[in-house]
Computed example of a mutant assay.
Amino acid sequence: MKHFQIPGYADVSLQNRQYFDFYKKQLGSLPNLYAMLAHSDTGLDAYLRFHDHKQSLTIPEKEIIGLIVGTVNQSVYCLETHVMIARLNGFTDEEIREVKGGSARFNERYHALAQLVFNIMSTKGHPASTQLEVFFEAGYTNESLVDVMLCIGDNMITNLLSCTMQVPSDFSPGQV
């Protein structure tokens, strides 16, 4: 199987170097997944513009989606990242395990979201009408549903890339 190297600063386009500089200043280094996107002269910029768009979902809601999509796709890299961010946003390890299984009984609204996302992923985009009803009854809107789909798509991109290119972890063993 082909081995994919993480490109370094000198290996990427001038446009991508701005992201290496930004993330080095903000985080100490560019996450490995973003570096892999920099194999394309425009891929990293295109992805980050999509990823950073304004939307109606909260950070915890986006992490619920990320945890479920990463679990279904068995994306180790993405799961490590979403577990870390979920913890930073107040989720306990027990809640994270529950979300990865497609539920969130600790919060009614999150539970409706988790069940819908798990159902969408399990049925390849053909959710049960009852799941949609529960989602809307929990206070979500059509805008929310569109944003859920965009967030699933965002996570699918990174899951597929991380699995296909075997992106190595950004964390030390046992850190997450």
Rank of each mutant, 00 (worst) to 15 (best):
H126D: 00
G66A: 14
K25P: 00
V148A: 06
G174A: 08
L145I: 09
F106Q: 10
T158K: 03
S122M: 13
D154K: 12
F50L: 15
F106R: 14
Q166N: 14
E108S: 14
L48A: 10
A46P: 03
S169L: 07
S40V: 01
Q26P: 00
Y34E: 03
V72M: 03
D154M: 14
Q18M: 07
V167K: 01
L14R: 15
F135G: 05
N155C: 05
S13T: 04
S162E: 01
G43M: 10
Q175C: 09
E133L: 14
D21N: 14
T42I: 13
H111P: 04
M165E: 06
T92L: 08
H39G: 00
E137K: 15
N73G: 02
V76R: 07
F20R: 09
I59N: 10
Y19C: 01
N159A: 05
V146S: 13
T123P: 09
R17H: 05
S122F: 00
S169R: 06
T123M: 05
L48H: 01
T92W: 09
D41M: 01
M121R: 10
I96S: 11
L48Q: 07
G139L: 08
N32Y: 03
I59Q: 14
L88S: 15
G28M: 09
G28A: 07
D147Y: 07
M84G: 03
Y9Q: 09
S56Y: 08
Y140H: 14
R109N: 11
E137V: 02
Y47N: 05
M121H: 06
Q15P: 00
E108L: 13
F22I: 11
M149P: 00
V99T: 11
S169Q: 11
G43T: 11
